[in-house]
């Protein structure tokens, strides 16, 4: 279809425009960069409207009855108060919805993170020291945590624990780095393949 062919040409042009940054910062790249920011912001607005405000506020307000309906005015008013920043004199009112979101975040920061992350991670570390891998895992977790314990200066034999912690941290960072490089290279291969296959039809 002609529409798809035009789309492929647009996509190829934008891909080359971004890749042109490898030569140097140039108007073509800046054009693509600004376009990216603009369309991403537009996409974000549509996404928030489609998956957040409309189903959670508008649709529920229309469908629900009684208390369940009118209680939705609370988040709606809080949301509108957030926009009070536009009006200088009453701008301080935006602190109220902000406080609400911070409060929920702080509450969840305690309960959800303990239940959903801290306890499962500790549980997964409480392993029988019967295999080399289990020993390495347990020692690695403990020494890494000790490395970030800044309240006490480790001296004497304890400092070797910190050195062991550094070894684990460096191996981990190296592995994460290698993994990230592979992901980026795979994306690059994807874009080159798109140019050679979908656009130029060479391969």
């Amino acid at each position: 279809m002609i529409v798809n062919i035009i789309g492929t040409w647009i996509a190829a042009g934008l891909t080359i425009a971004i890749l042109s940054f490898l030569y140097k910062d140039n108007p073509l790249y800046k054009f693509a960069e600004h376009l990216y920011v603009g369309v991403s912001a537009g996409f974000g607005v549509i996404y928030v409207w489609a998956f957040d405000l409309k189903p959670m506020l508008i649709d529920r307000f229309i469908e629900n009855q009684g208390v369940e309906r009118w209680i939705l005015l609370v988040p709606a008013v809080l949301g509108l108060l957030m926009l009070s920043r536009w009006f200088g004199k009453i701008g301080y009112l935006s602190r109220l919805p902000l406080a609400f979101t911070v409060g929920i975040g702080a509450g969840l920061g305690i309960t959800a993170s303990i239940q959903g992350f801290l306890l499962p991670q500790i549980q997964a570390t409480l392993l029988p020291l019967t295999t080399i891998n289990n020993i390495i895992l347990v020692v690695g977790v403990i020494t890494t945590i000790l490395y970030f314990y800044f309240s006490r200066d480790f001296k004497g034999p304890f400092k070797y624990l910190l050195e062991l912690g550094i070894i684990f941290i460096m191996v981990s960072f190296g592995a994460s780095f290698g993994y990230t490089v592979m992901a980026r290279i795979s994306l690059l291969i994807g874009r080159i393949f798109f140019l050679l296959s979908d656009w130029l039809r060479i391969i």
Binding site: Q121, I136, T144, V171, S172
Partner: peptide, 16 residues
């Protein structure tokens, strides 16, 4: 699976 998970877990526990 092993050293990377160990260090990552230690760091995440610290963050939490």
């Amino acid at each position: 699976d092993v050293p990377q998970t160990a260090a990552k877990r230690g760091i995440y526990i610290g963050i939490v």
